[in-house]
Amino acid sequence: MKNTLETEFFKLVKCDKHKAIQMVFNAYWNTLYQHAVKKGQCKSMVQDLVQDSFISFWDKLDTINPKESVLAYLYAILKNKTLKFYEKDEVRSRYIISLSSFGIVSDSNAQNIIIEKELKHIINREIERMPPRMKEIYNLKKEEELSIKQIATGLSLSEQTIKNQLQMAYQRLRTRVRA
Rank of each mutant, 00 (worst) to 15 (best):
K43V: 09
S100K: 13
A36S: 08
A110I: 08
L32G: 03
T31Y: 10
K88L: 07
F85Y: 12
E126G: 03
N80E: 07
Q167G: 09
S93N: 09
D107A: 13
S106G: 04
I113P: 05
K17H: 05
Y75M: 06
T153A: 13
T175K: 15
S69H: 06
K2N: 15
V24R: 01
K135S: 08
R176I: 06
L61Y: 06
I77Q: 00
R133W: 11
A179P: 03
L78A: 11
N80D: 11
C42N: 15
K135N: 01
M23K: 08
S156L: 10
Q160H: 12
R92W: 08
L155K: 07
P131Y: 14
Y28A: 01
E145Y: 08
Q150C: 07
A110V: 05
K43T: 12
K84Y: 07
A20L: 02
R125P: 01
K39Q: 06
I96G: 03
S69R: 08
A20F: 00
V177K: 03
E6Y: 06
I115D: 13
T82E: 05
L166G: 02
I123D: 00
L74D: 00
R133T: 14
C42Y: 04
E128L: 12
R172A: 01
E126H: 05
M134K: 12
T4V: 12
K67Q: 15
I151F: 01
K2Q: 13
L49Y: 01
H121M: 14
A179C: 10
D107I: 06
A179V: 07
K17A: 06
K17L: 01
K81L: 02
N112A: 15
E126Y: 03
N109E: 15
S158F: 10
K163C: 09
E136V: 02
V91I: 15
S147E: 08
H35T: 12
R125V: 08
T63C: 07
M134G: 02
I113V: 13
S156E: 13
